[in-house]
């Protein structure tokens, strides 16, 4: 049964002062979250006591101002960040749509980029083979698929990236903003694909600044502020 349970999850990380020969005042990078002191060390409290429970069918919208912890929470759920406190229990295969262009290589053909993207996503050779034609068809790139990615227009590149990234069968889908791509007709097709994806996924967690989108897609809304849960409705 697909589910997500977070109990008092926190993420605190040290602002590493990288050993460097530059002047002390120029060493620190600006990061989101609450910056606090722990002894002589500076730490960022990116998430603080976050708890919620989601079960199959739930669509959670994450809202909040910049630096509230939305993307951080998504990355904690995906496993990129390890929480420093609390417990996370996830049942189900998690897929994420954070950066659809990740791993695309300008010199490789569209077809080769699909293979690489598939490998990075953990697909087997058979799965890549099986999904190849579906991705090519969806992207509508035709013969361009065998040309180098760098020869594509921005819209064509976005179509391929979108088609490859959304050929998923997720049980839990994490999204940092709703993605769309291409010209008006493709935008409509992309919107349908996203709706289908949302329909197929057991649970969706979507971080967005678009209230209308959250209202349309999500069944629950979690508001974050300064890494803490402000409300859950």
């Amino acid at each position: 049964m697909t589910s997500i349970t977070l109990n008092n999850v926190s993420l605190v990380y040290r602002l590493f002062e990288k050993l460097t020969l530059s002047a002390p005042g120029r060493r620190r990078s600006a990061l989101g979250g609450n910056i606090a002191k722990s002894g002589t060390k500076q730490v960022v409290q990116a998430l603080d006591g976050v708890s919620f429970e989601l079960k199959a069918g739930d669509r959670l919208g994450l809202v909040g101002p910049n630096g509230a912890g939305k993307t951080t929470l998504l990355k904690v759920l995906y496993g990129i960040y390890q929480p420093s406190g609390g417990t996370i229990s996830i049942a189900g295969k998690v897929d994420a749509l954070f950066n659809i262009h990740i791993g695309f290589r300008p010199e490789a053909t569209g077809r080769r980029n699909i293979v690489l993207r598939g490998l990075i996503s953990g697909w087997t050779a058979a799965e890549i083979e099986e999904k190849m034609e579906e991705i090519i068809d969806f992207s509508e790139l035709g013969d361009f698929i065998d040309l180098p990615f760098k020869a594509y227009s921005q819209g064509m590149a976005a179509r391929l990236a979108f088609a490859a990234a959304t050929t998923l069968e997720p049980e839990i889908l994490l999204m940092d903003e709703w993605i769309g791509a291409g010209d008006a007709s493709f935008q409509e097709k992309a919107k349908r694909r996203m709706d289908e994806l949302a329909e197929k996924a057991g649970i969706i967690v979507l971080a967005s600044h678009d209230d209308a989108l959250i209202q349309r897609v999500c069944t629950k809304k979690l508001t974050l502020r300064g890494g803490r849960v402000e409300s859950l409705a």
Partner: peptide, 19 residues
């Protein structure tokens, strides 16, 4: 277990540098 990923990426890296 993900050897196919790093082998493929390494080949692409070499290819890109001299393409």
């Amino acid at each position: 277990r993900l050897h196919r990923v790093w082998i493929a990426l390494a080949h692409e890296d070499i290819g890109d540098q001299h393409r």
